[in-house]
C-alpha cells in the first residue's frame, strides 16, 4: 500500500487549502456543465485526448482498471464508475460493470474518461 507513494509523490505532498479545493471543484463542475451544454462529445476531443481515452479504455478492458465515465444524457451529464467488460464494435457501445449492475453506454455519448481512485 505504501508503494503508492512511488507513483503519487506529488499527490501525497500537494498542499491545497480546503477553500481552494472547493473552488477548484466548482471550477471543474462549471467546465463539465459547459461541456454538456456545448454538446461536447468524445468526437470533439482533440486527437491527443482521444488517444489518452483510448488507452484508458484498453487498460480498463484488459486490466480491469476502474474508470469514471462521464456520459451525456439529454441536456445533462451522468458519471458512471465502473470497469469496461465488453466492447461492442458493431453497435458502437461499451458495457460497464458498475457494482452489481451492467450498464451499456454508446461511445458517442461519452464526454470524458478518467481513472477512478
Amino acid at each position: 500500500m505504501r508503494k503508492k507513494k512511488l507513483y503519487h509523490q506529488f499527490a501525497c505532498s500537494s498542499l491545497i487549502l480546503p477553500e481552494h479545493r472547493a473552488r477548484l471543484a466548482q471550477h471543474h463542475q462549471k467546465k463539465a456543465r459547459e461541456a454538456c451544454r456545448g454538446e461536447t462529445s468524445l468526437a470533439a476531443a482533440d486527437e491527443q485526448q482521444q488517444e489518452q481515452f483510448q488507452r484508458l479504455a484498453e487498460q480498463s478492458l484488459s486490466r480491469q482498471l476502474p474508470l469514471k465515465v462521464t456520459v451525456r444524457e439529454g441536456g445533462s451529464c451522468r458519471t458512471i464508475t465502473g470497469v469496461i467488460i465488453e466492447q461492442q464494435s458493431l453497435s458502437g457501445k461499451i458495457r460497464l460493470q458498475s457494482g452489481e449492475c451492467i450498464i451499456t453506454v454508446a461511445v458517442t455519448a461519452i464526454i470524458y474518461l478518467e481513472p477512478a481512485f
Binding site: R2, L6, H8, Q9, F10, A11, R21, H28, E114, F117
Partner: peptide, 27 residues
C-alpha cells in the same frame, strides 16, 4: 527507510513514476 528511502534515491537520479491526473484532486 523503506519506500521513502527508495523514493529519495530515485529522486536523486531524476527518476519519477508520478502521473498527473488533471481535473481530479487526490481523495
Amino acid at each position: 527507510w523503506g519506500v521513502n528511502g527508495l523514493l529519495l534515491w530515485l529522486n536523486a537520479h531524476g527518476i519519477d513514476y508520478s502521473t498527473l491526473q488533471p481535473g481530479t484532486l487526490a481523495p
